[in-house]
Amino acid sequence: MAHKDDKHHDHHEHHHRHDHGSELSEMQIRVRALETILTEKGYVDPATLDAIIEAYETRIGPHNGARVVAKAWVDPDFKRALLEDGTKAVGTLGHVSRVGDHLVVVENTPKRHNMVVCTLCSCYPWEMLGLPPVWYKSAPYRSRAVKDPRGVLKDFGVTLPADTEIRVWDSTAETRYLVLPMRPAGTEDWSEERLAQLVTRDSMIGTGLPKSPDQVR
C-alpha cells in the first residue's frame, strides 16, 4: 500500500517534504499504527521511546568522540591505551558516554589516511559519534568508499597527497571504528577543551580533516 509513490523518491526523501506532504503523512500514519499496535500488545512503552529519542537528540553525538580525540592529542599515555584497546581507554573517561565493546581506534599519520564505511548497511560508532548522517547510509558512499575513496574525499572537498596510503575499514561485524585524526599544526599550546572544537564528525569517519586553528576562536 505504501509504495505507489516510491519511484519519485530517492534516499533524500526528506528534502521533498514540501512537495510530497502526502507521502510524509502516509509515513506518519503508518509509523503511528505500528507504535499503537506494539503498545497495545504490551511490547513497548511510548515513554521509553521518548527517552531513547531524547538521548539521541540531546546527549549522544560527535562531541563525545571529539573529547576522546582531544584527550589523545594531549595525553600520550591515553593515546597509547586508546590505540591498544579503544573500549577500555574510553571507559576510563568518566565524563564521556559509556562505550560498548569492540571499539577500534585507527590513527591517521602523514603517511596513512583512514576512512570508515559499512558497505552492507550503516554500522557506525553511535556512542562516539551519535547516529550516522544520511550520506553515510547512502548508496553513493557505501558503493564507492571501498573502490574510489579519493573520489569520495573529493565530494567532501578533501584532497590528499598522491602518495598517502588510504586505508578503508569496512565495518562488516560488531567491531566499530573511530579515526584518530592528526592534530592540526599551530595548536601546541591549546587546552584539551579548545582542541575538541577542532574535531569534526567527518574527521573521525575519515571523510574530513579537523578544522584549522583559525576556524575557531
Binding site: 526528506h14 517534504r17 510524509l24 509515513m27 506518519q28 509509523v31 503511528r32 505500528l34 507504535e35 506494539l38 511490547y43 513497548v44 512503552d45 521509553t48 521511546l49 521518548d50 531513547i52 529519542i53 539521541y56 537528540e57 553525538g61 551519535g130 547516529l131 544520511v134
Partner: peptide, 17 residues
C-alpha cells in the same frame, strides 16, 4: 538527527523491541 519525528519513533521502536 531526525528529518521527521516518525524517524525517531521507528529507531526507538526497533531498539526497544
Amino acid at each position: 538527527v531526525f528529518h521527521a519525528p516518525w524517524e525517531g519513533r521507528v529507531l526507538a521502536m526497533n531498539r526497544a523491541m
